[in-house]
Write a protein that binds this DNA or RNA. Structure first.
Length: 418
DNA sequence: TCTGGGGTCCTAGGACCC
DNA sequence: TCTGGGGTCCTAGGACCC
């Protein structure tokens, strides 16, 4: 059986271990630049504060309820995380540390699950001060749901098992499909269009149709919900494939010099991370983008990658290549999404559209296609049509139309844009 | 109405997670 | 005024090859 052990409100719990006077008081912890709320104590959740909300939007609430606000302290959280994981390791060597506050355990079958799990829970609390919830089930995906239920069921006391089919079916019918691990906002929306709104409905959906429409990852979720384990425990984490340092700026950056300076700084931090992981980089990528929250302005994004002749983690060397990559971006010209232009609005769902076309005879398909293109032409002009039709083949792969809300033009014009 | 068929590699983009 | 940062995996399309 898989167990998912998840710390409750981890960052705020860490702050409380560090400062017990905070027990019972409302706390939030903020993201790196103190921009967003990334952790909330139960008291704050009860006030309706959402995960990820910009802190300036809840200033009045903070004043009103005397919410304690903390900048994130990742070295403290990392340290406490290690202690929690080490404690769990006492129960079984088969442990996958999934994130800073979660671990999957492979547990042997026991007679009294309730007793056993409460023992784990109490031990972690006693040894580290961190409260955890535990879900147990035959697959990782179900264990995730069990954990969710452990947290939301009032008399569960932080422990929940989904062992037999009857319990699984009863509980899954009460879980929203968007609460299933691996189902995000987009997929939830799409599933809803097909009448799938609960975890139970997804479990009973046709897995091949799901695969066709949403890919193999979604199909695995269906199987996992049925109790068929597709996601194994990963005992030793594979080495990182990339390390990133990225930041949003406080002010719009309009000079190349300022941009390069920042990129040099981030590159040196990235190099330090690489050395910390005992890794060397074979490719270096620099990317830039405009502030996505300024609506009605054209959005710009670009990147340049350089294959390093010799893989390295040396700061000076990496900065050298980062500067070259940055110059490449400056030279490249640029693409931007025109604000407010979203071709997918014309064609709401790629797959639906394709199915629609499949069902019609060719003359009718052709007529519809011409109409769509005419609409695009009318709304956005022929430049967009040119991009929209790139790759359009005789069998009318409408995907090409949906995928090209972009323009190409020269760097000089960015000055006007910015 | 049909248009060769098989392959590899790379890139961009879209989805998800914490 | 202020809107996070760090990851992974999968898919589609295009260039290119024989």
């Amino acid at each position: 059986m898989f167990a998912l052990i998840d710390a409750n409100n981890f960052y705020t719990s860490c702050e409380r271990v560090f400062n017990p006077k905070l027990n019972g008081k409302p706390i939030v912890v903020l993201s790196n630049n103190d921009g967003c709320v990334v952790a909330r104590s139960n008291e704050v959740k009860a006030l309706g504060v959402k995960m990820g909300i910009p802190v300036f939007q809840i200033r009045p609430l903070i004043e009103q309820h005397h919410i304690q606000v903390y900048s994130s302290n990742y070295s403290l959280y990392g340290d406490l995380s290690q202690r929690v994981m080490a404690t769990l390791g006492e129960f079984t060597p088969e442990i996958e540390v999934y994130s800073i506050d979660e671990a999957f355990l492979m547990l042997p079958n026991v007679q009294d699950w309730n007793d056993y799990l409460h023992q784990i829970q109490a031990t972690v609390k006693r040894w580290t001060g961190i409260p955890v919830s535990i879900g147990v089930a035959p697959t990782k995906t179900l264990a995730k749901i069990a954990n969710h239920l452990a947290k939301t069921t009032p008399d569960a006391a932080g422990v929940f098992t989904l062992l037999d089919t009857a319990t699984q079916e009863r509980m899954l019918s009460q879980v929203k499909v968007s609460d299933v691990w691996g189902i995000g906002r987009q997929w939830a929306k799409r599933l809803k269009q097909h009448g799938i709104e609960t975890a139970l409905q997804l479990r009973e959906a046709n897995e091949w149709q799901i695969k066709q429409r949403m890919g193999v990852v979604a199909m695995r979720i269906v199987l996992e919900l049925r109790g068929l384990s597709c996601l194994p425990l990963e005992l030793c984490p594979p080495p990182k494939k990339m390390r990133t340092v990225s930041r949003s700026f406080e002010h719009p950056v309009e000079s190349r010099a300022e941009l390069k300076e920042a990129i040099a700084t981030y590159t040196s931090r990235a190099a330090a991370k690489l050395r910390g992981d005992n890794l060397i980089a074979g490719v270096l990528t620099v990317f830039v983008m405009t502030n996505q929250f300024i609506h009605n302005e054209p959005q710009y994004q670009n990147s340049a990658s350089i294959s390093l002749p010799v893989a390295t983690n040396d700061t000076a060397e990496l900065i050298h290549y980062a500067m070259r990559a940055t110059d490449t971006i400056f030279r490249k010209g640029y693409r931007y999404k025109r604000a407010g232009v979203n071709l997918t609005e014309l064609i709401p769902d790629t797959i639906e559209q394709r199915n629609l076309f499949d069902d019609l005879n060719k003359r009718e398909r052709s007529r519809q296609l011409m109409q769509v293109i005419d609409n695009i032409n009318r709304k956005f002009g022929s430049e967009t049509v040119r991009y929209a039709t790139t790759g359009l083949k005789r069998d009318w792969q409408m995907k090409a139309v949906c995928r090209s809300p972009r323009f190409t033009t020269r760097w000089d014009e960015l000055a006007e844009v910015s």
